[in-house]
Computed example of a mutant assay.
Amino acid sequence: MKAAIYNGIKDVTINELAMPVCGENDIIVRNLYASICGSDISAYYHGGDSVRIFKGFEFGHEMVSEVVEVGQNVKGIEIGQRVYPYPLEAKNDRSRAATVGGFSEYVQIPNCELGKSVYLVNDKISSKVAALIEPFTVGTCAARKANPQPGQKAIVFGAGAIGVAAAIALKHYGVEKVMIADLSDFRLDKVKNLGFEVCNSAKEDIITKAKTVFGEVPGYPSSCADVDIYIDAVGASVVIEQWQNMAKYGNKLVVVGVHHKPVPIDFTLITYKDAQILGSGGYHPQDVATVFEIMESGKFNLESLVTHEFNLKDIVEAIETASKTEEAFKVEIKY
């Protein structure tokens, strides 16, 4: 079989590997679609150790697959079914969460358990959309951490896949109005078509825009936008600064974007605003269930988020395309 191997910075090759062997407790899946994650891009340009993509490994973890072999001891799974390999458990080794083999033609799922290693994908979800399940679970987890309530209002910083997933999950949970802020007009146009308010914070003052969209309430040290929930899906210090200056009393900030440097926080503002800061890393099985509900509902045109498809042989071009935020949203490998 053919598989993309990560060899280091700007060094990815397509190698011919032996077909994986199916043990009595395993399944073998054939990948249908795999999407490119920001961690794949980071490994390609900056090195993979920090994102647990190691030299010499198959990689890719945002995938949907078809079962082609089933071990005799595996229960509840049949040949021909589509499955979502759950990255944290798919290889029975959590250190392999980013190196499952989404960019390989076939993958062994060892000691496979339905509802743990893999989840069945409903026919209502296209394979193109199903390849977005993993990033959608990350964004959904961030939204859930805010304990959103019907009628609340929210701002999401970042119009990448995780930010958009968080915004969609907030709407699914009943949040009345959501605005997404980003620097890319290309991406903001995408999310505007999904029904969200948008703000290009490079061209508009986000505090003024938020007050216009959501209204104002009394606050400290002056009036604030009437927003209950903020989600940082960027990982930039300016986002934290903006949030501190615009947030109202009793708000919550969920940080899912990765900050690579310490960020200054004015705890006087946090105290007087009675604010909460929550971290959100990864996802949990309950988030998979919520993402399935969202995708099966068909309320959002999620296929519109996939802007490019490539063959496996063109994996390098696919990764480089995915890095261009003014040209691409989600880029997928189609098998």
Rank of each mutant, 00 (worst) to 15 (best):
D11H: 06
I79H: 00
N311I: 02
V213H: 00
G215P: 07
Y283M: 06
G195P: 15
T212P: 00
I270P: 00
S297H: 03
P87L: 14
H61S: 13
V291Q: 05
K128L: 13
G139V: 04
G160T: 07
V175S: 02
K91S: 15
N73V: 01
S304F: 01
V254K: 00
C141E: 07
K261H: 08
I294Q: 13
C224M: 03
G80F: 06
L114A: 11
A322C: 15
K203G: 11
N7W: 08
N7E: 15
H46T: 14
G298C: 07
L305H: 10
I206H: 09
E293N: 12
E309C: 15
E204W: 04
F196V: 14
F157A: 11
G282F: 07
K334Q: 12
L305A: 14
G56A: 07
A146E: 00
D26K: 03
I41R: 10
G281M: 14
K330L: 04
V74M: 01
S39H: 05
A169Y: 03
S304T: 08
V198N: 11
Y119K: 12
Y44Q: 02
F300I: 10
G139K: 00
Q286I: 05
K116P: 14
G219F: 07
L17V: 13
A247R: 11
Q149I: 09
S304H: 02
D93Y: 00
F136P: 13
E78A: 06
K190V: 05
I207M: 06
F329H: 10
T325Q: 13
N147I: 04
D182H: 10
I9K: 10
A142S: 11
T13H: 00
D182F: 10
K261A: 05
T307Y: 01
D266K: 15
G23H: 01
I265G: 05
K171F: 01
A43S: 15
P85H: 04
S184Q: 12
G215S: 03
K10C: 09
G8K: 03
I333H: 05
R144T: 08
C199K: 02
V68Y: 06
I14H: 06
C22A: 09
R144I: 02
P264S: 02
K192D: 13
E320N: 11
C141W: 14
A143L: 06
V227Q: 04
G235A: 11
A328R: 08
L188Y: 07
L305E: 13
K190S: 08
F59M: 07
F310L: 00
D314R: 05
G235R: 13
A18L: 05
N301E: 14
N122W: 04
K171I: 02
D123V: 11
